[in-house]
Simulated scan of single mutants.
Amino acid sequence: MEDPRRGIRAVHSESTITVYQAYSPEIGLPAASEGRFPARWKRDRMTWIKPSFLWMMYRCGWGSKAGQETVLAVEISRAGFEWALRHASLSSYVRGVHPDQATWQRELRRAPARVQWDPERDLRLQPLPYRSLQLGLSGEAVRRYADEWTVAIRDVTPLAREIHSLVSGGDLDSAARLLPQERPYPAADGLLAHLRG
């Protein structure tokens, strides 16, 4: 199946979708052990969630960047994820999607979530010709994410390091076999129509 130019590919079940984030150990380790974000996790700032494991690896350098040493797989409810998409605005103005820049800016100010479409990455973290969703949550969406949508939090840093080691050694086949099995997310057209950009 050909990948759409912009699409959501993720690990998902009938009721949940897995997204990724990376934090310092002071936040990431308690989150994974307690299954919820600790008190020091800031609810008053935007947090970005990424359904693509390899895009997260690109962003955090396989867990090597300062403040991003702990990679988390956060399983959230599909109902919550889809609420965020319905209430999201594109993070940048797109002619043809928005009537004008002023309308887009009003939407962006009101929206508790925002969407960016960034190039998907391969195992060497090189850009691919299609894009993956990054979903920014703020205000009400951050609170819902932490208190209502989160089902489980796992520390996948060892997995990231194992895959990175195989890639560094040139064993791409073994690395690929360890990747989370992401597949197209069955989002109804109406869910993404205002976010295609």
Rank of each mutant, 00 (worst) to 15 (best):
D3A: 12
P4M: 05
R5W: 03
R6F: 12
E14C: 06
T16H: 05
Y20H: 11
Y20L: 05
Q21G: 08
Y23D: 15
S24W: 00
E26Q: 02
G28D: 02
E34I: 04
A39Y: 13
K42T: 03
R43L: 15
D44M: 02
T47A: 12
T47P: 07
W48I: 01
P51K: 04
S52P: 11
S52Y: 00
F53C: 01
L54P: 07
L54I: 06
R59C: 14
C60T: 09
G61Q: 13
S64F: 09
A66G: 12
Q68G: 04
T70Q: 14
V71C: 01
V71W: 07
A73R: 14
E75F: 07
A79K: 15
F81N: 04
E82W: 15
W83N: 15
R86W: 15
L90T: 13
Y93L: 15
R95N: 11
H98P: 08
A102S: 13
A102H: 09
Q105R: 13
Q105F: 05
Q105G: 05
Q105N: 07
R109S: 09
R109K: 03
A111M: 10
Q116V: 14
W117E: 11
E120R: 11
L123A: 01
L125V: 07
L125A: 11
L125N: 11
Q126M: 04
Q126T: 09
Y130H: 15
R131W: 00
R131L: 03
L133I: 00
L133V: 06
Q134S: 02
L135M: 03
S138Q: 10
V142T: 09
E148V: 01
V151C: 14
R154A: 13
H164P: 02
L166N: 12
V167H: 01
D173K: 00
R177V: 08
E182L: 00
E182T: 08
P184R: 14
A187I: 11
A188K: 12
L191Q: 06
L192G: 05
L192N: 03
L192D: 02
A193M: 07
L195H: 02
L195W: 10
R196D: 05
